[in-house]
């Protein structure tokens, strides 16, 4: 049952991710990336991380990618001039081959590996009983309070920085 959901979602994620780096029109790339984010959101649901799944859609698909689209349309950057992939075909192929080899190697290594470490107290049953969102909220305001506050400062700096940078002189 889980595989029935995992395999299509994984295929969707990989396929759309490949489109992101292969298509020429930036708008299509951005849309493909939205597809990847949706596939990942589905995978998060499969991993019982409802809060992360929904926030993934709100932040990535709803805000970040809309900003990307906005900038692409505003600048009208259009297509990359050919040759949009680097000219060095042999080296490109060599590089891709090495990447494939690395991923394969990783797959073999990970496949036969047993995760070490001690299991934490948050089992599926416990998370379901208390609620995923409630737990994250509680942890954010207790154990992770200082990082949480620092995040707000980072966001503030980003807002100010973006305004300074994008403002017309």
């Amino acid at each position: 049952m889980e595989w029935l959901l995992f395999v299509p979602l994984a295929a969707l994620a990989l396929g759309t991710a490949a489109f992101v780096i292969l298509l020429r029109n930036p708008i299509y790339c951005a849309l493909a990336l939205v597809g990847t984010f949706f596939a990942l959101s589905g995978l998060y649901l499969l991993l019982q991380a409802e809060f992360v799944a929904v926030v993934q859609v709100i932040i990535y698909a709803g805000a970040i990618m809309v900003l990307f689209l906005f900038v692409i349309m505003l600048l009208d950057v259009g297509h990359e001039p050919p040759p949009w992939l680097r000219r060095d075909r042999p080296r490109l192929l060599l590089g891709l081959g090495l990447v494939a080899l690395l991923v394969l190697e990783l797959a073999v290594a990970i496949g036969s590996w047993i995760a070490p470490g001690i299991r934490g107290p948050y089992t599926s049953d416990y998370v379901n009983a208390v609620g995923n969102t409630q737990l994250i909220g509680r942890l954010l305001f207790t154990e992770f309070l200082i990082p949480f506050e620092i995040t707000s400062i980072i966001l503030l700096i980003a807002i100010v920085g973006a305004m300074v940078l994008a403002r017309r002189q």
């Binding site: 849309l31 809060f51 926030v55 859609v57 709100i58 698909a61 709803g62 805000a63 689209l69 969102t133």
Partner: peptide
Amino acid sequence: NVGLLYLFGVASLGVYGIVLGGW
């Protein structure tokens, strides 16, 4: 459990139809 967040997530997608249609 995350009903309201779901609604906001879905609502934030509505903008795609408009922006892409316009472009």
